[in-house]
Design a protein around this nucleic acid. Structure first.
Lengths: 336, 336
DNA sequence: CTGAAAGCGCTAACAC
DNA sequence: GTGTTAGCGCTTTCAG
C-alpha cells in the first residue's frame, strides 16, 4: 500500500530475470520460458505492479487509445454510438479518449490538437465536413482516422455510415405519397454539418420531383433538441404558417414539435403530420409514434471502432461500411 | 506534410536556443525572455510542432487526463453528466478518458486496472459501492478520485451527489399523502449499487412510518430501461397484482411502465399512478408528465470535474458537494 | 534567464 | 530464450 509505484525493473529483480525478459513476459508471453513467465507473474502479483503507460507509449510509439470527437455527448443518438464504440474498443484492449466540439469549428480544431498531443493511435470523427485545420493536422501526423455517420459529400475511403441524402429523399417521398403539399422543414444549423445539408437536399429533391417547392419562410433552423422543435412550431404558427406536415431533421426536434402540438391542442396527425430522423428509442413511445428514418447508431459505433482498429493495426477491414437507414412508418404521418 | 513528427529538439535547433529553453517557452512562458519566447513560437509554427504527450507524461508524471468510469454511457442521466464533465475538464485543459462497466464487478476491476495503467491524473467513479479491488488499486497508486451521485453509505470525504435515501423517502411520503397503500416497486439490481438500495430503503422507511409494508412479490428487479419498466408491469399484472401505484427506481423504467399502461389500456393516474426518479428531460413530456425526483446530473458532472481537479492540483475545493434532489410533482401521481 | 545533462520507465534491437 | 544496451521526447535540476 505504499504510494511508490513499482517499476518493471523491480519486477525483474524480484523475479531474478533481466529487464528484457520481464518486459517480454508481459507483452509476448509465448516468447518466454514457462518458468520465467511464472516467476515474473508472481513478482507482478506480489508488487501489485501496473505498467506505466506513458513509458510504454514513449518506447513503443503506441498508446492503445483511440480518440473520438463528437458534436455533443448527450444527444441519445451519439450516446448510443459512444456506448457501442467504447464496448468494442474495450473488447480489443483499447481505451477511449473522448471530446466534443458543440458544433463549433474552433472548438473542433482545438480538440483535434489536444488529441494529437495526447498521442492516440487512431481517431473517429462524426461527419465528413471538417475544418481544413483538423484534417491537415491529422494528415501531417499520419493519424489513422475514420469518418462516421455520413457517406455524403466525400471521397475519403474510410467512412462508416449511410447516405443522409438518400434517406431524407425516401422519407420525403413517403410524405408526398400521403398527399402533403404544404410542407414545413425544421432543421438545424448546416454549417460544418453535411448531414443536415444532405437531409434538406434529399428532401428538396423528392419534393421537387412532385413539383413542390419549399417556401423559405417555412424552413427553420433551430437547435437539435426538444426545445428547438417546440420553438420551431411556435415560430411557424406566429408567422401564420399552416403547413400540413413538419419534416424534422432529427427525432429530438420532432418530439419537441409533437410536445408543442399537445400544448397548443393541435391533433397529430389529424391536423398536422410530423416526421423525424434518427429513430431513437423514444420515437416509438411518443403520441403518436413517430414516422422517422432508422439510423443504426450502435452499429455505426461498433463498426467504426473495428474499422479504425483495422487501420491502426494495418489489417484488412472486414465490415461493410455503408449501412441501411430505412424509413420507419408510424402514426405521426397518418395513414394512407 | 511529412509523417515524421518534429521534436522539441528540432524546435530548439531552429529557434537557436537550448532544449531546456524551448521546453520552458512552452510550459512556463513567463520564465523566458520575450525574444526567446518569440523565436520558439515561430519555430513551433513553422514545423507544425505538437508536443509528444507520452514523453511529457513520462518526464513530468502528469498526463492532464482524467478518467471516468460509468455504469453505462447511454443512459441519459449519465450522458448528461458526462457531457458536463467533459466540458468542465476541457475548460481546465484536461482530457477525458472514459470507460463503462455495465454494472459488472469484474468489468469494473479490469477497467480500473486499464485506467491506472494509462496513468491518468485523477478518477471519477459513480456511486459509493465498489469492489475492494478497485479501491485498493486506486489507493495503492494514490490516485486522487471522487465518488459521484451518491452520498449514501460512505465516509469517503470526496463525494459529489445527494442522498438517494432521503430523496426516495420524500417521494414516498408524497405517494402516501396521495392515499396509496397498495404499492408496487419497480427497481433494478442492487448488488454493487448503493443508489438502488438506498432508494428502496428510503421508500420502505416512509411507508413503514404509515404502517404500510411492501409485499415481496410486488417488488421487481428489472433492467434500467424502458423495456425493464414494461416488463415489470406485465409481470405484476400476470401475477394478479393490482397496485394503485408503481414507484420506479428510475425514469426510464417509469416511462416503460407508462408505455405499457397505454398498451394495456390502463389509465394513468386514474387507474394506476406511477413515479420515477432522475427527472430526465423526457419526464416532462410523457403522458401524463411524470412525478419524479430531480437529479442534477449536469451539476454533478461539472462539480465532480472541478473537485477532482482540485484534488489533483492540491488546491482547496470550492463547491458544495451535497446537492439538492427535490421531488417534482407532476400528473402521473394524480392530484390531491 | 539559459544551457547542459540526468533521468522518467519501458521497448526493441542486438549479441549471446 | 535471455541479458545488455541504446534510445523514445520531454522535464527538471543544477550551474552559470
Amino acid at each position: 500500500m505504499k504510494a511508490a509505484r513499482a517499476t518493471l525493473a523491480d519486477v525483474a529483480r524480484l523475479a531474478g530475470v533481466s529487464l528484457g525478459s520481464a518486459s517480454r513476459a508481459l507483452s509476448v508471453p509465448d516468447q518466454v520460458k514457462p518458468q520465467t513467465l511464472e516467476s515474473v507473474q508472481r513478482a507482478v502479483e506480489q508488487l501489485g505492479y501496473v505498467r506505466n503507460g506513458a513509458a510504454q507509449a514513449l518506447a513503443s510509439r503506441k498508446t492503445r487509445t483511440i480518440a473520438a470527437l463528437y458534436p455533443t455527448l448527450n444527444n441519445p443518438i451519439y450516446a448510443d454510438s459512444i456506448q457501442a464504440l467504447q464496448q468494442t474498443l474495450w473488447a480489443h484492449g483499447y481505451q477511449l479518449l473522448i471530446a466534443s466540439h458543440e458544433y463549433k469549428a474552433d472548438r473542433e480544431i482545438d480538440a483535434a490538437r489536444a488529441i494529437v498531443e495526447r498521442g492516440v493511435d487512431g481517431l473517429i470523427l462524426v461527419g465528413t465536413d471538417h475544418p481544413p485545420a483538423v484534417l491537415d493536422l491529422v494528415h501531417q501526423y499520419a493519424l489513422p482516422y475514420v469518418l462516421t455517420w455520413s457517406v455524403d459529400n466525400t471521397h475519403y475511403p474510410h467512412c462508416v455510415g449511410f447516405s443522409n441524402f438518400d434517406a431524407a429523399y425516401r422519407l420525403a417521398k413517403r410524405v408526398v405519397e400521403h398527399g402533403h403539399t404544404d410542407i414545413a422543414l425544421c432543421g438545424g444549423a448546416m454549417e460544418g454539418n453535411e448531414r443536415a445539408r444532405a437531409r434538406v437536399a434529399g428532401t428538396r429533391k423528392a419534393l421537387a420531383e412532385s413539383g413542390i417547392a419549399l417556401r423559405p419562410e417555412w424552413m427553420l433552423e433551430v437547435p437539435f433538441s426538444f426545445e428547438g422543435g417546440r420553438h420551431a412550431l411556435r415560430t411557424l404558427l406566429e408567422r401564420g404558417a399552416r403547413p400540413s406536415v413538419v419534416i424534422c431533421g432529427t427525432d429530438l426536434q420532432a418530439i419537441g414539435v409533437l410536445d408543442e402540438c399537445r400544448t397548443q391542442g393541435i391533433d397529430v396527425p389529424g391536423q398536422l403530420s410530423v416526421t423525424g430522423f434518427d429513430d431513437i428509442e423514444l420515437a416509438n413511445i411518443t403520441h403518436p409514434p413517430l414516422t422517422t428514418v432508422h439510423v443504426p447508431s450502435f452499429e455505426i459505433g461498433a463498426r467504426s471502432a473495428r474499422h479504425v482498429l483495422a487501420l491502426v493495426e494495418a489489417r484488412p477491414a472486414q465490415d461493410e461500411m455503408v449501412l441501411d437507414a430505412p424509413v420507419v412508418m408510424r402514426d405521426s404521418l397518418g395513414r394512407l
